[in-house]
């Protein structure tokens, strides 16, 4: 008991050190001009995409329900936050964090409302409902006056700095991990594995499906809010089903149900199209071919359901020690 609690403490310290070190390293590179404005923009985009991928992974990877309207939740978060910072009259630096929280809450509420009918269905049917919902949002945003109609929203203060995107990502990551590795997370996993058995074992499956779905929507909303203030403008067409599919691709590429997979695949799939600019017109073709190759050779995604944990490293180190020839 004592041994394990000291190990937990050590892990906490190590986590905090790593998180801080990455932050300081990246921040220094950005302020000292190692990254130009294009590259640092890419870094912010990577962190936003990581939040997005993680959030969809909660609904699709952990809960196991195919959601094809994730861009819709992101749009709700994006517009809510942007409208608040533009119209509230408060200083942006105060309003922006509040707006992000508001965006999460509104996304969560909409997620709940969509979930009530949608979560009674399974698999393909749920996918179609969420797909339809995503399209609905995109069309509504185009119709409403206060969202700027088809022109979208312009003049959103561009305040999503690297620090914002990074810390929002860390918060999302920590919340999702701590939630998933608890009795509540286990309940959600058990629904993915076998809903009938889960219900018979005493899990209120509807409740936990709803929790996962709302959580997924909330973090998508957060990513949306960051995205809006990163871009500086919002167009309703951006949030169509293509974008939902893009997010889904990141989740599947990384491995459904793997947090580590989501992180790595968000990095790769954000960078890849940029790195492939050299191929000019064949860019998307190469990207598509790489996806096909991965799906053929590793249909479960890069990480499957595995995680990169300290335990993996410890085991790896141990094995290496044992393998060293005795000289």
């Amino acid at each position: 008991m004592k041994k394990s609690s000291s190990r937990v403490f050590k892990t906490y310290v190590l986590n905090i050190v790593i998180i801080a070190a990455i932050f300081i390293a990246l921040q220094l590179m950005i302020t000292n001009g190692v990254f130009n404005s294009y590259t640092s923009g890419l870094v912010v985009q990577i962190f936003i995409n990581m939040i997005l991928t993680l959030s969809l992974n909660v609904a699709t990877g952990f809960l196991g329900e195919l959601c094809l309207g994730h861009a819709g939740f992101m749009a709700i978060g994006a517009y809510t936050t942007a409208l608040l910072t533009i119209n509230s009259g408060l200083p942006v630096m105060i309003m922006f964090p509040l707006g992000l929280i508001a965006g999460m809450i509104i996304s969560g509420i909409i997620g709940f409302l969509v979930g009530v009918p949608a979560l009674r269905l399974k698999g393909d049917y749920l996918a179609i409902i969420t797909l339809a919902f995503g399209e609905m949002i995109s069309i509504l945003l185009r119709t409403f006056k206060f969202t700027g109609g088809a022109l979208g929203l312009n003049g959103i203060p561009r305040v999503t700095s690297f620090a914002y995107s990074y810390w929002c990502f860390i918060i999302s990551l920590v919340l999702i991990i701590t939630f998933m590795f608890s009795r509540h997370g286990r309940a959600i996993l058990s629904i993915r594995e076998d809903e009938i058995a889960s219900e018979a074992t005493g899990v209120n499956t509807f409740k936990y499906k709803m929790i996962a779905f709302v959580m997924s929507a909330m973090f998508a909303g957060l990513a949306g809010g960051l995205f809006a203030h990163f871009q500086g403008n919002l167009a309703p067409e951006k949030f169509n089903y293509n974008y939902s599919i893009d997010i889904m691709v990141m989740v599947v590429f990384g491995g459904m149900g793997s947090v580590s997979g989501s992180i790595v695949s968000a990095i790769i799939l954000t960078l890849l199209p940029e790195l492939l600019r050299g191929f000019s017109e064949f860019r998307m073709l190469v990207y598509a071919i790489m996806l096909i190759v991965l799906m053929i050779f590793r249909p479960e995604g890069m990480f499957g359901r595995k995680e990169v944990t300290y335990r993996v490293f410890r085991r790896f180190l141990k094995r290496n020690k044992q393998n060293k020839p005795v000289s």
Binding site: S182, R183, R186, A187, S190, S198, T201, G202
Partner: peptide
């Protein structure tokens, strides 16, 4: 552990 869930007490 999933079997213990319904008697679980700690909140989210």
């Amino acid at each position: 552990k999933t079997g213990f869930h319904h008697r679980g007490r700690y909140s989210i």
